[in-house]
Design a protein around this nucleic acid. Structure first.
Length: 411
DNA sequence: TCTGGGGTCCTAGGACCC
DNA sequence: TCTGGGGTCCTAGGACCC
């Protein structure tokens, strides 16, 4: 672990930059990427022309519009961003096989094997920036350091289009006056707790006795102490040892809060179907179903239910989720958000497939998957997802199968 | 700030078994 | 059994990340 050289690549205003690249009319103008403004949505990304107005990710659309009335709002296209992201990661892998995909627009590279000096690392950083600019027409910030913690802090120091090196001998001076909230892992709550102890900067954190931090925060205290000293032994996890998926889920904020039990039920069903489609597409099934609810006063909670068999059918997931809902002391409160997730996942091997005995609902699911793959997502849906059964059925496509799902699904 | 959606990890308590 | 302790699983919820 000694003498490592780690790079952190962080794309600049990723979603907004992609939109500006593909649509020249947006260049040089304040662009805000968000969800469908007709739903209750927030800012996903802001271009560098919009940031000076105070636009930040997570901000409500109303607030963003108030701060920057001239902004251009663009509905995000996740598929396009994922595709661009893949191309960028392919470029990065040319520079090091030890590339860890950290998020859609961030990656770590361990170049210790191929690069013996920090001067060489700077050249590599420069070459990466050039390749991404020439091949993708996008800019990024690159941070270089002796570990992931320092590399990530370094990439944050100059945006956009930065290249910052923090060699080991400069770590302590760099951290000295850096606010603790800049550390990855220190959020609002932790910041509050640390402030209460008189810890404001990473320098303060490093000086604070480790035993006291352990006393206050348990195992986390140990990690915090190391962070304060700029120490981080976490390896760069490259593709060969990518961690397995632990859960898959969807949440949805309703257009309007509702206390209509049938509307809630339909949404639970619809979300269950969406999760199931993804599970089957990636060959996963799971044993634990989680229902998440947020009431209109923002009180949010979740309830889990584990069964002793594996689920990947929307109807089966829905049944468990509905069981959870009916057991709640709901009292007719208005619901703002509904979520369904499935955990305790296993990846289906071929063997498991052969052993699996398909139930009626499972075989119907597979036929539905094939039709939806061919004609578009959710062209064919179960009757239970609909408001008024018959009139919304997709014509022709659904004929016959709808009747089948209706009877087999028992709905 | 009328506040999205996708995740992960950690903790703590209770049930259950040996 | 008026019982101790360890291990594992399940559940709920908090905090954090992008």
């Amino acid at each position: 672990m000694n003498n490592r050289i780690v790079l952190h690549i962080d794309m600049n205003a990723f979603f907004a930059s992609i939109e500006q690249k593909t649509n020249p009319a947006l260049r040089g103008r304040p662009v805000i990427v968000c969800g469908n403004p007709e739903t209750r949505t927030v800012v996903s990304a802001a271009s560098y022309e919009a940031k000076p107005f105070g636009i930040k990710a997570g901000m409500s659309i109303g607030e963003a519009r108030r701060l920057c009335p001239q902004a251009i709002f663009v509905i995000g296209n996740l598929a396009k961003y994922v595709d661009t992201s893949r191309q960028i990661f392919n470029i990065l892998r040319r520079f090091s096989a030890k590339t860890e995909i950290f998020s859609i627009d961030e990656a770590f590279l361990d170049i210790s094997d191929t690069c013996s000096s920090y001067a060489g690392a700077l050249q590599t950083g420069q070459a990466i920036k050039k390749a991404i600019a020439v091949e993708m027409g996008l800019t990024c910030s690159v941070g270089i350091g002796p570990n992931k913690l320092i590399a990530k802090l370094a990439s944050d120091m100059k945006k956009p289009d930065g290249l910052i090196l923090v060699p080991p001998e400069q770590v302590s001076t760099t951290l000295e006056n850096l606010p603790i909230k800049d550390l990855c892992g220190v959020g609002r709550q932790m910041e509050k707790h640390l402030h209460a102890l008189g810890i404001y900067t990473c320098g303060d954190l490093g000086c604070y006795p480790a035993s006291m931090l352990r006393q206050h925060f348990g195992i986390v205290g140990e990690v915090l102490h190391n962070m304060g000293l700029g120490l981080d032994s976490a390896p760069v996890h490259y593709s060969d040892d990518e961690p397995p998926v632990k859960s898959m889920g969807h949440t949805h904020t309703l257009a309007r809060d509702t206390a209509d039990v049938d509307e809630i039920r339909r949404n639970i069903f619809s979300l269950s179907e969406q999760v199931a489609v993804r599970l089957r597409k990636d060959n996963y099934c799971g044993r634990t179903v989680c229902l998440i609810l947020r009431y209109s006063d923002f009180f949010t909670f979740s309830r889990h239910l584990t069964v002793d068999y594996f689920l990947d059918s929307g109807y089966d997931i829905y049944q468990q989720a509905w069981k959870i809902f009916t057991r709640l002391d709901w009292q007719g409160r208005a619901v703002r958000l509904i979520g369904i997730s499935v955990s305790n996942l296993v990846h289906k091997t071929r063997q498991l497939y052969l052993l699996e005995e398909f139930t009626g609902t499972q075989s119907v699911d597979r036929v539905m998957d094939r039709i939806n793959e061919k004609y578009g997502e959710f062209r064919l849906i179960r009757a239970a997802m609909m408001k008024s059964e018959r009139k919304l059925v997709q014509p022709i496509l659904a004929r016959g199968l709808w009747a089948k799902t209706f009877t087999k699904g028992g709905l």
